[in-house]
Design a binder for these strands. Sequence first.
DNA 1: GGCGCACGTCACGACAGCGTAACAAATGTC
DNA 2: GACATTTGTTACGCTGTCGTGACGTGCGCC
Lengths: 229, 229
Amino acid sequence: MSAPKLLLVEDDTALAELVEYRFRGEGYDVRTTDDGDEALLLAAEDTPDLVLLDWMIGGTSGIEVCRRLRRNKSTAHVPIIILTARSDEDDRVRGLETGADDYVTKPFSPRELIARVGAVLRRVRPALAGETITVGDLALDPTAHRVTRRGQAIKIGPTEFRLLRHFMEHPGRVFSRGQLLDAVWGSGSDIELRTVDVHIRRLRQAIAIPGAADPVRTVRSAGYALEGV
Amino acid sequence: MSAPKLLLVEDDTALAELVEYRFRGEGYDVRTTDDGDEALLLAAEDTPDLVLLDWMIGGTSGIEVCRRLRRNKSTAHVPIIILTARSDEDDRVRGLETGADDYVTKPFSPRELIARVGAVLRRVRPALAGETITVGDLALDPTAHRVTRRGQAIKIGPTEFRLLRHFMEHPGRVFSRGQLLDAVWGSGSDIELRTVDVHIRRLRQAIAIPGAADPVRTVRSAGYALEGV
DNA sequence: GGCGCACGTCACGACAGCGTAACAAATGTC
DNA sequence: GACATTTGTTACGCTGTCGTGACGTGCGCC
């Protein structure tokens, strides 16, 4: 549920197994493939939270996988860490140009890789790294499953919690009802769009405290957003 | 249960005796072997809390023992400290890649090794370092196998003890039933998820005292957590 | 052997939380 | 201002989850 999902694309089987093992030990949910095309499929059917991408793989080259991940809407914003054997500067530039978030040259220690992954996740989605996220006077602790506003605890149901968490991971950004259904309920759920409204109301009710403005903004005919800072 | 169990794999008999002697003096339960294969057997039949592994030993090489410890489910998460004569950087990388937790180069003072072992145990499982952990008005003494609340002794069964200890090692954090089964019952035990509920109830009953709130929090559709401070 | 204890499982009941529909209110359009 | 569209709000039935008591079993101890 809250374990960050990694997609590992690596054709060195031994290395892949090692990395997979260590990350599982760290509480990650890892899926592995040695093929670029399969990677794109896997990423499409269940969007990972981060992609570890070998630079040179069979099927499609790493740079191509990177580009195509970016092109696809659901995977466009997934952070990517490139693994490469060459410490060549040209490659580094090309990798980052293609939209990779970080760059690790082989040989690396799993510990180093774990640290890098942690760093990228902390930067991109703090809640996935188990860190408390703060937006305005709201604070959400994902590991303790706790929400506070101005220091006082908020009683909140599971769905509202996930909804709020999604908002707090992208403060200020407007989400359509469909996007919220995908992100909070899961992409395969056929739920009425209007159901979102009800949960927005419940969320508003839950985080409402007297004398404070409602941080949930309605954007007419577009969706909802959390007031960022 | 209370004394941390060490497995020492070392073929320098004099050194092994010295280390063993010193650690026994510190209250550890030490078993020693000079053979890699025997080490794996010993580890399998009675999972140690930490393995001290010489890099170069007869039978199987240290790195191989390390790998095979990791591959076995019951020993997969046991911390390993590598002892090596070479301060060579390549080895260091390879050792950590294989999943060792720390690395001590010979010659070392027993005092240093004791400190490192303590540090690793504290990091991995605070209760094994023999320190009493305190959360709120609860206190748990892992060596004496005793729990007190507001100073008064609590009668508690073995499973509830391990459950409470796990909670107290991670106060405030929410664990799913599956995670609790892995952590308290051991991974690979096929126990019904709902069994956790029953033991949660028994734990609640055990630590309940009149006029005090229940420190075990139910997080609906997520799991349970111990109220942190 | 008899006893007590701790354990894992089950079944039942309670209820929180969910999704939906229906109606009220607000907002935008001409 | 009249209308259409979008959103807010409420009520309701249903499902899934949780708490709880009871039961059978295995094990060690006396």
